[in-house]
Nucleic acid binder design. Structure first.
Lengths: 201, 201
DNA sequence: ATTTATTTAATACACCTGTACTATATTTAT
DNA sequence: ATAAATATAGTACAGGTGTATTAAATAAAT
């Protein structure tokens, strides 16, 4: 008896509109009215799918992390030598220059926002943190890391570096040379990996 | 003929109130009314010193950067062996655990906000970027860096690392071990400095 | 064709927003 | 004391905010 509208598809549409607005105007501009307009529906319609604004934001954040996790999985399957693959993977998790729908940027904005939104930031639900953890444990598995490496410490160091690079790319992206981030990540990887182990870049 | 109120002192008071609110509630909560209440004055009074909200925010951001630059200068004068001094300096530019008036945190919030505030982020006005640049050129001067170091690249790498660490400390500060950041920075410094040059930590 | 469940539109409420304006203090200089 | 300059309070306007409620439209099932 319903109108033939897929509930979940519609929710995804709205979440994508939210995502887009967050990138364009920040969380500040992500009012329900703005989002409804962006999604091409009415306030009442939006309200039908998400009874509360917070519910919509949580849903959108989940979508963004799911998207990033999926991209991570794809990048893991590329056919390349291990160290080069990992480098490409990390680069792939930075804001793409010119892409208008960057999941990385949206994640960063929402991550910082979490400081003032009641619910505290949970790294275990952060797709980027998970990706970095996977990468590090892969390096361990392949025995590419230098001896006496503190895995936990290096994980956190790389994670911080990724957040900083993402921020830099987002805020001064145009100013930077195209593969500045690539060179930095390459240097970083070389500094934590064994030398001459065939993995050298 | 005026009431004996130091204009600049009052402006600083208001800016400090703004600063405090930004930490507590984010830029979103930094409405002129909220700020006026925090500063213990009326909306009209606030409006007398800052005719526009944006003017107040710019003023506050300048204050924060000036505060950080001052702290950097102080930390540069501590009497310690070079490499240890630099380590302490970097640690001093991360969010202090438990301090309710962290300039570093406020800077980070405003930095990210710059994406959606029209005016684009200018690294040359960023106190942290300047500090990192000073630190790196000091390492060069003291001949502590490894041969074949790309100075510009390592500057940007350390800068990104600092931003990432600041973010981490701010968002999951309680979760982290007290000197996690210290260990990370120590590792990082050792990895870019010559070994056995007497600067080893 | 009529019933039924789902989807949309429209409106209203109470509140917060930045800015503008006016009238009233308050304090110093003459 | 009077005048001038500074400072504050109070109020108003136009618009945005999240949420709630109601009535209407839509399309499938009977």
């Amino acid at each position: 008896m319903p109108k033939l509208i897929d509930h979940d598809t519609k929710k995804l549409d709205i979440a994508h509109a939210t995502w887009k607005i967050i990138l364009k105007e920040g969380v500040r501009g992500a009012s329900v009215r703005n989002i409804a307009k962006e999604a091409g529906i009415t306030l009442g319609a939006l309200r039908y799918y998400f009874t509360t604004q917070d519910e919509l934001l949580v849903y959108t954040e989940d979508l963004i992390h799911a998207t990033l996790a999926e991209r991570t999985a794809e990048l893991f399957m590329v056919d390349l030598p291990p160290q080069e693959k990992i480098l490409q993977l990390l680069i792939g998790l930075l804001p793409e220059t010119g892409s208008g729908s960057s999941a990385v940027e949206a994640r960063l904005i929402l991550k910082l926002q979490s400081k003032h939104s009641g619910k505290s930031f949970d790294a275990s639900r952060d797709s980027i943190y998970q990706a970095v953890k996977s990468i590090m444990s892969n390096l361990v598995m392949l025995n590419l890391l230098k001896k006496e490496t503190d895995l936990s410490l290096e994980t956190d160091r790389l994670y911080a570096l990724m957040d900083g690079l993402a921020m830099d790319a987002m805020l001064r992206g145009a100013v930077n040379k195209p593969d500045k981030a690539r060179n930095i990540l390459e240097t970083h990887l070389n500094s934590i990996c064994k030398e001459g182990s065939g993995g050298q870049l």
